[in-house]
Nucleic acid binder design. Sequence first.
DNA 1: TTATTTTGTTAGATTAACCTAACTTTTATT
DNA 2: AATAAAAGTTAGGTTAATCTAACAAAATAA
Lengths: 217, 217
Amino acid sequence: MLTNTEENYLKALLHLMLQSGNNETGTNKLAEHLGIKPATVNDMLKKLKTKKLVMYEKYGKIKLSKDGRKQALLVIRKHRLWETFLYEKLHFSWDEIHEVAEQLEHIQSEKLIEKLEKFLGYPQADPHGDPIPDAKGEMKTYQKTSLLEIPVGSICQLVAVKDNSAMFLQYVSELGIGLKSKIKVISKMDFDGSLRIEVNRKQHNVSQKFAENLLVK
Amino acid sequence: MLTNTEENYLKALLHLMLQSGNNETGTNKLAEHLGIKPATVNDMLKKLKTKKLVMYEKYGKIKLSKDGRKQALLVIRKHRLWETFLYEKLHFSWDEIHEVAEQLEHIQSEKLIEKLEKFLGYPQADPHGDPIPDAKGEMKTYQKTSLLEIPVGSICQLVAVKDNSAMFLQYVSELGIGLKSKIKVISKMDFDGSLRIEVNRKQHNVSQKFAENLLVK
DNA sequence: TTATTTTGTTAGATTAACCTAACTTTTATT
DNA sequence: AATAAAAGTTAGGTTAATCTAACAAAATAA
Ligand SMILES: [Mn+2]
Ligand SMILES: [Mn+2]
Ligand SMILES: [Mn+2]
Ligand SMILES: [Mn+2]
């Protein structure tokens, strides 16, 4: 049985590992991501190692074990199912669900998650477009393209957002953009990488950073 | 902001206070109820006192303050709304919901509870027949009669159960009894206080303790 | 009213999850 | 290769929530 804190570490670890191609990360990055101090992380890593959830040697890189990875995916599964519940059934807005799901993801009851999944009609993705792992901790990952890579003149469709922060999501909503929105790239500025896009017949100028966080197909 | 543990103490305190008419209780009873040691309770009471949630002097009786009582009722509110959700929407059985709700009741989000309440259609009572306090921490308490007090020959209707344990509730279900079941008292045994009842045209012999935990009107 | 039992308190430990300050190792930069 | 910077570790503390063992007060029974 994992504690809330351990679950959060595993989730953070998987997140950082997926982010940085090489499937490994370090103490400082993990601390930064969790908003705590490296010294604390160091202690916890020793604990996670004795529980065989991570592979880790002094001064070495941190990796998730097979089991650690599975546990992390099961937490993500819970998180995304709860987010879907909050959005679909309770009509929370896009940007509010993450925070509450951070708490709900730690409820311990396999039966609850199974029943919740059924209640929601076995959704494949959460309201941010992220895939929901199955009960075995397996997740289909499909190729996602950033809006940045779309050539000028073509039209694409939003399938997911990379950043889940309330601030970013509110901004996206304000522009009338949501999952499945059709986005046309009108032009790109070489100067700062920003681009002009059209959504629902309205045009907007958005920064490079903004576009990078919209994942399209 | 209250911790999970503090919330559990307040809930336990209210429970024991309501149980024992005089609106007060002691360290040992509280410890017993929470499944921990009196020494631990003693420490926590000091903490709850500094937070002005209980009234308490060394060797004296323990009482909830106005605010403590309100907080306790808000936890009960959350508990009962979640139980209703688990029962009505996820189709958990009567005896499974309490345990999961023990966890869910600690999720911190007022908005979540408001939306949940709306989603459930503003229920007045949980699946055990217990009233659900409102957002201000006010709860309507209605008079409940134990099945024991029903005279031989008369018919009554189950409105609530006193004991929420899985064991008791499973037993009740096995006899085909649920909320709103019509129960006829056929006879009473003076010897051990047990009684013969009829539900759905089936007769059963039940103990005094069993009957005591069925609340009827 | 004294003795016994029950109830409640204190002191001293433990564990999980955090911290700061000081130190060590590894990596990057001159 | 030497030095500086970054990354990681250790030692020693703190707080919340728990425990055991010993003690004190209150309630009950003899
Ligand atoms: Mn979390
Ligand atoms: Mn999400
Ligand atoms: Mn609880
Ligand atoms: Mn209930």
